[in-house]
Amino acid sequence: MTKRRDPLTVHQALTVIAARIGWDKCGMLVGRSGRLVRMWSDPDADSEISILDAMRLDRAFIEAGGDHAPILRVYSFQLDIAASEGATDMTRAAAAAAKESGEAVAALLDAALHPQDPGALRRARKEGEEALAAITDGLAALDRQEREVH
């Protein structure tokens, strides 16, 4: 049975990397066994990946055709969530995320239709960044709510 790995965790990012390059190659790249790297992806294991090994695996993922650095992305999102001072009310956070995401999608479609228009490209980037910020605020509000409940 496959163990559940929460989104936005290093555990889940490691499984994304291994799906592309394989557990054994992951182990070879960091000078460890594939089994140990698989343990790093287990949320119940005590063993954790080092920052240098994370960098090596992210780099290998990109070199194998990946479009981002999975562990870096998780780390970056986690820092953004921790630092967010966004909306505390889940309803407001969800509404803002929906609004900003819709505007981002519309701007991306406009940029796709007008790829030579620098203004359309700038608006798409701006709207995308605003959508990411709103979603990050929503995740931070969710984290605060979970802490209050537990």
Rank of each mutant, 00 (worst) to 15 (best):
L79C: 11
R35T: 13
R92A: 12
A98W: 01
L108T: 08
M39G: 02
F77M: 14
S84F: 04
I81F: 02
W40D: 01
G34K: 06
M90G: 08
K99L: 13
L57M: 01
R35S: 09
Y75M: 12
A107W: 00
S101D: 05
I49N: 00
A82H: 10
D53L: 00
A111N: 11
T91Y: 08
V37P: 00
I62F: 15
G34V: 07
R35N: 08
A64D: 09
A82C: 06
E63I: 13
A94Y: 02
D44L: 10
R35D: 11
L108F: 07
L52M: 13
D89N: 15
A98T: 10
A54P: 08
I62V: 15
G102A: 08
L57K: 00
I71E: 03
D67N: 01
S84V: 07
I49K: 01
D110R: 13
G65L: 11
Q78L: 11
R32D: 10
A64Q: 11
D53M: 07
S101Y: 04
G86P: 08
A45Y: 00
V105I: 12
R32I: 05
I51C: 02
T88K: 09
L79Y: 09
S84R: 10
I81R: 03
M55Q: 11
G65N: 07
I49L: 09
T91V: 12
D67I: 00
G65I: 11
A94W: 04
V74R: 04
Y75L: 14
R32G: 02
L36Y: 04
R35W: 05
Q78E: 14
E48D: 06
D53N: 09
S33V: 07
E100M: 06
H68W: 14
H68G: 07
I71S: 03
S41P: 07
A83F: 06
G86V: 04
A83I: 08
D89M: 13
S76T: 15
